[in-house]
């Protein structure tokens, strides 16, 4: 009876541990994406600064695939601004998801701790018996 219990507990523990490792992987991935976006945000801000410093008659090109396409300065400016907006929104979203994931991770860790304690107490009881 108790051995079955212990086996169940161990199986549950393994499942939870797997879930936890998955969560941790997700969190790490999120962090990486977040880092990438932050770098892009910095670059875009630099570009925007430079574009703001350009005179209106300056020639601006955008590299699309292998070719340079001439762009209007105002258009380029608007594009960069939009891109920055998008990246900021994305960063916010990522922050929210990371927070969510971390909360989940915390609860999972707690449940695992509880399970381990349970298993230990069960094993101790078994050892006594």
């Amino acid at each position: 009876m108790s051995s079955i219990n212990i086996r169940d507990l161990q199986r549950e523990l393994e499942n939870k541990a797997n879930d936890l490792s998955k969560l941790q992987k997700d969190i790490a991935k999120n962090h990486q994406v977040r880092k990438k976006y932050t770098i892009q945000l910095g670059e875009n801000e630099l570009v925007l600064k430079e574009l703001d410093l350009l005179k209106e008659d300056a020639n601006v090109y955008k590299l699309i695939g292998p070719v340079l396409v001439k762009q209007d300065l105002a258009e380029a400016n608007a594009n960069v601004r939009k891109r920055i907006e998008y990246i900021s929104a994305e960063l916010k979203r990522l922050d929210a998801t990371v927070q969510d994931l971390e909360e989940k991770q915390k609860s999972k860790q707690e449940t695992i701790m509880k399970l381990q304690q349970k298993a230990q107490s069960l094993q101790a009881g078994k050892g006594k018996a």
Binding site: Q40, E43, N44, L46, V47, K49, E50, L51, L53, L54, A58, N59, V60, Y61, K62, L63, I64, L68, Q71, A76, V80, R83
Partner: peptide, 28 residues
């Protein structure tokens, strides 16, 4: 000079203007 500003944007610049851009980058 055709200066890469980042994110695939290029701009036609003179030597002096290019140096200014580069110095700003140096500051960052």
């Amino acid at each position: 000079f055709l200066v890469l500003l980042g994110e695939g944007y290029y701009a036609d610049r003179t030597s002096k203007q290019t140096v200014e851009i580069l110095q700003r980058r140096g500051k960052t």
